[in-house]
Design a protein around this nucleic acid. Structure first.
Length: 475
DNA sequence: ATGTTC
């Protein structure tokens, strides 16, 4: 073992602070997955995060952790609001990359005969792939509106129903957003990309509920065995990427001035309470609003596809949003009675019942935690717990997490083999780009069952249900 | 992740 981790429990491993580290690292994982982490730079990256000013308690790694830009993916770090930093690399390039889950109320058996047609309609109505553009271009004035207001803006424009908004983290908008701090270049990149999936790990999936782990919570979230659900995973596209690029460049220039140590050239950070820190937070919030609008337009397109393909079944039937989570974001939250800036980079909020930020049924049950796996082995729906508030700043993992780099996956897997293997499992794959599909080969990811293990055993989320794919649309 | 090397 290259690092001197102490085993706090079978699922929690701690690396004591040393050198410039202000706090220890704490990893929620297994012995086996911890060993794999030594093959990339993610532990060193998390040690750098633990060395940043104002970090509170520990730097957290989730079981899906792997190497990212400056800051690992599958990591959570909270900083004192007054003395701590904010880091664009701690949010990620795809600001408010996130996941939403829809329930259709239709059974697997009912939709099976027209699945191919559904796949084709979804593939046509939801543009995917690098550089994909949407069905309409938004004006600059419209961009300012949606960047400021988020999901409510696009729902008012007719894409969705008011009840959608109450099933979104932060109700689909961050009030700190300031559209004036999003560069012209970022706005220009974003005007024609709304309603598009993008590439990489982004996807649209039609799944069926395979297993219910908790009948009461499944019923509360409207999940029934064999029912069809739709997963949407995408973010803020080129706009968010441009905001991240703009502010990483600005931050790098200013670090010396604010005397923030640069442990790695990718890990730019500035005090939150500086004009630059606040500016990034306001621009990040606007990009987060854009991502919620993006997922909302895609939701509208999914509803349209189901209505077109199944007009008979959809008569009197609505497709409802179960929940929408952000997994690349920084938010002001209160933990241990302290105001903190929580960075979740590939981390899902997992607030429990009774949390003051939750409303409606979620106040009673806790928020749904949406944890997608790879495109063959399916995904989990969990629920937030009190232990996540006590231990992980109300957070858990965000997905299976990569096991292999994109390049390594392309070297190992051929498109035809992936497609044939998925067909064997009765999964139809619609891929905009064969190379991207090879990067996303199921075996390039950790086994989602193995990733969920430490979460469930440590109690930082509770399992509610598991779904398996039938149709996969990939960028 | 990304108008996939501004």
């Amino acid at each position: 073992m290259k690092y001197a981790f102490e085993r706090k429990s079978p699922w929690v491993f701690e690396l004591p602070r040393k050198g410039p580290m202000q706090v220890p690292l704490r990893l929620y994982t297994t012995e086996g997955m911890l060993k794999q982490l030594e093959e990339d730079q993610s532990i060193d990256q998390l040690m750098n995060v633990a060395s940043l000013p104002g970090i509170y308690r520990y730097a957290l790694g989730m079981p899906d952790m792997h190497q990212g830009f400056g800051f690992p993916i599958g990591a959570v770090a909270a900083f004192d609001i007054d003395s701590g930093i904010i880091s664009p690399g701690g949010v990620g390039f795809d600001i408010n990359c996130g996941v939403r889950l829809l329930r259709t109320g239709l059974s697997r058996q009912a939709i099976e005969d027209r699945l191919d047609e559904l796949g084709k309609r979804l593939f046509a109505l939801v543009p995917s792939g690098v550089g994909s553009t949407g069905h309409r271009v938004f004006s600059k004035a419209e961009m300012k509106g949606l960047l400021s207001e988020g999901a409510p803006w696009i729902i008012s424009a007719g894409f969705g129903v008011p009840s959608d908004q109450s099933a979104m983290e932060s109700q689909g908008h961050l009030a700190a957003a300031d559209a004036e701090l999003v560069s012209e270049k970022a706005i220009e990149r974003g005007r024609d990309e709304l309603g598009t999936l993008g590439a990489g790990n982004h996807f649209l999936e039609v799944d069926y509920i395979e297993t219910i782990y908790d009948a009461e919570y499944a019923a509360a979230f409207g999940l029934r065995e064999h029912d069809i659900v739709v997963w949407i995973h995408t973010g803020s596209r080129g706009l968010g990427h441009q905001v991240a690029t703009d502010f990483i460049n600005l931050f790098k220039k200013k670090m010396d001035q604010y005397k923030i140590p640069l442990y790695n050239h990718e890990l730019a950070a500035l005090p939150f309470k500086t004009s630059e820190g606040r500016q990034y937070f306001a621009a990040m919030s606007a990009a987060a609003n854009y991502a919620w609008v993006n997922r909302q337009i895609i939701t509208h397109q999914v509803r349209t596809a189901f209505e077109q393909v199944y007009p008979d079944l959809m008569a009197g039937q609505s497709i409802d949003l179960i929940y929408d989570v952000a997994h690349n974001i920084a938010k002001e939250e209160v933990h241990d009675g302290k105001k903190l800036l929580v960075h979740r980079k590939g981390g899902t909020r997992a607030f429990p019942a009774g949390h003051p930020e939750l409303e409606g049924p979620f106040a009673q049950y806790g928020q749904p935690v949406l944890l997608p796996g790879d495109m063959k082995r399916g995904s989990y729906i969990l629920v937030g717990t009190g232990a996540s508030m006590d231990e992980t700043f109300g957070s858990t993992a965000h997905g299976a997490g990569r096991r292999l780099s994109r390049n390594e996956a392309v070297r190992r897997y051929q498109f035809e083999d992936i497609s044939a293997d998925m067909a064997q499992h009765h999964i139809r794959l619609f891929a905009a780009d064969k190379k991207v599909a090879r990067e996303e080969a199921p075996d390039a990811y950790k086994n989602v069952d193995e990733v969920v293990g430490p979460i469930v055993h440590a109690g930082i989320a509770r399992p509610v249900a598991r779904s398996r794919p039938l149709l996969v649309i990939k960028g």
